[in-house]
């Protein structure tokens, strides 16, 4: 990986965290699915990037950042995991097992940022005291985003650059037992991703539908798209049948 490619990877990280895309960035560049695809484009292998990014994203399907709390930095995990996965030829599950702990480190940046950004409130207070409506953008956009650009691009670019260089040798040194353990762990991780989502929706009448979806795949071997279309019909039928009764959500 060249230095230039590493910096471009860092820019994806900024696009996910920063506000160059506004609220849209959090739902696109911040998701490993998209971040992995973009990283793949930068490294000249969009197909592998999409596969690894999608795999890593399984872990973060239902990640909710409510009230400014963030459980894990899926964006950093997506970019570094994909970059390392492509350059070292890791299996997607192994790339995932490497990426997720990196995502935990990334949350430090989030907490640091929310703490440091407080200084811009002081700056804005001075502008409010003078009634300068035309200057607030400096404190709300320009300065905090410049700061964010530096603190996102630098660590992400470094992680991609050195990760790509050393992880392969490091894993080879540890041998095939470690690699197969990583693949096992990577295969288990989506269970947590699903459980996080289920925590919010696995309630009342919805519970039996989870089992139904599982059984349709386990016994009938239906693909996800087939299950998706069947689900829409089954849920609509269910709602029509129970239309006149109270449907308990919190039961």
């Amino acid at each position: 990986m060249s230095v230039f490619q590493a910096i471009l990877c860092g820019l994806i990280y900024y696009a996910g965290n920063g506000n160059i895309l506004g609220g849209y960035g959090y739902y696109t560049a911040y998701r490993p699915l998209v971040a992995g695809f973009l990283t793949g484009c930068i490294l000249g292998d969009p197909v592998t990037g999409t596969i690894i990014g999608g795999t890593i994203n399984l872990m973060y399907i239902g990640a909710i950042s409510a009230g400014g709390a963030l459980a894990s930095d899926m964006c950093l995990a997506g970019i570094v995991g994909t970059a390392v996965g492509i350059t070292s030829g890791l299996a997607p599950e192994a790339a995932m097992a490497v990426a997720v702990p990196i995502g935990l480190l990334g949350t430090l940046l989030w907490f640091g940022r929310l703490t440091v950004d407080t200084i811009f409130v002081r700056g804005a207070e001075k502008m409010v005291a003078k009634g300068q409506t035309d200057k607030i953008w400096i404190m709300d956009f320009l300065l905090p985003q410049l700061l964010l650009l530096v603190v996102t691009v630098v660590p992400c670019a470094l992680a991609c650059y050195f990760g790509a260089q050393y992880i392969e040798g490091f894993l080879n040194m540890l041998g095939s037992t470690v690699l197969s353990a990583l693949i096992t762990i990577g295969g288990m991780m989506p269970a947590l991703g699903v459980a996080i989502t289920l925590k919010f929706i696995f309630k009342g009448d919805a519970r039996v539908f989870f089992l139904l979806g599982f059984l349709m795949t386990a016994y009938l071997s239906l693909g996800m798209t087939a299950v998706g279309f069947f689900s829409v019909c089954i849920v609509l039928i269910y709602m029509q049948v129970t239309k006149n009764k109270e449907v308990g959500v919190n039961g």
Binding site: V194, M224, V249
Partner: peptide, 23 residues
């Protein structure tokens, strides 16, 4: 909408577990 989407989500997640969690 939330109620219907929760059921839909649960069903698709069930399929997802079978397809993509491996142990």
């Amino acid at each position: 909408v939330i109620n219907g989407a929760s059921m839909l989500g649960c069903m698709v997640l069930g399929a997802l577990v079978c397809n993509y969690v491996s142990l």
